[in-house]
Amino acid sequence: MRVLIAGDSHLARPVRGGWSIAPGAVSVAVGGSVATDLPCQVATLDPSAYDVVVVSIGTNDAGWREVPLEEFRAAVSGFLSWAGQTPVLLMTSPGCDESRASGHWSDARLRAYADAAAEAVTRAGGSVLSTPSVLAPLGAAAFVEDGFHLTPAAYDLLLPALAEAARATGRSR
């Protein structure tokens, strides 16, 4: 399966750690990215070359970069237009451990952005993986000291779930 990975550090970090959701997956994800950065990540790519596009976006939008929700929605919509007929799988923001995250992040705000992205992706015919649901068994242990990046234990749960969801979402060739 040909997989394109885009978005923020939640999907950029596994690649740097040597993990992936599919053999040969192409990652253009960059830490710190927001939805308005997605066009730069995929500018030279043809979405039809992939069976599925996996994207993680929303954490930085809702947090330290403070992208207005309407601007976020418009950027997600633009990304979905770029993807065209290629199925999109959204990995929602995992939320945060508010006791350790700086004042930039709150679970309520992260959920609002995750819900907005999920609504757009679902409306466009894509799929959504609820990252908080996958990571729930770990509780606060899903997050490193900063309270919003994920631990290796979190990726041990998340990456297999993403791989399964990508297979279910992607088109067969």
Rank of each mutant, 00 (worst) to 15 (best):
G58D: 06
I57W: 00
N60A: 06
S27Q: 05
A142K: 01
V26Q: 12
Y113S: 12
T36G: 07
E119K: 10
E145H: 13
Y50P: 02
T36E: 06
E164M: 05
W105C: 04
A62E: 07
G139F: 08
R109H: 05
T131G: 12
P68K: 06
D61F: 04
A168Y: 00
L80M: 10
S130N: 12
A112K: 09
A43N: 04
G24E: 10
L138N: 01
V88N: 01
C96D: 11
E98V: 13
D156P: 01
A62V: 09
A154I: 02
D146N: 08
F148L: 15
V144T: 14
E145C: 06
G24D: 10
G32T: 11
L159D: 02
W19T: 00
C96H: 01
S172M: 04
T131A: 15
A161L: 07
P137C: 03
A6M: 11
A153I: 00
A35S: 15
F72E: 07
P23F: 05
P160S: 11
A101S: 14
P87L: 08
S56I: 03
D115C: 13
D115T: 15
P132R: 02
E145V: 10
A153F: 03
S56F: 00
D115W: 10
C40D: 14
A43G: 07
A29Q: 08
C40S: 13
G147D: 07
S93V: 07
C96F: 11
G95C: 10
A117N: 11
P23V: 09
W19R: 00
A25K: 03
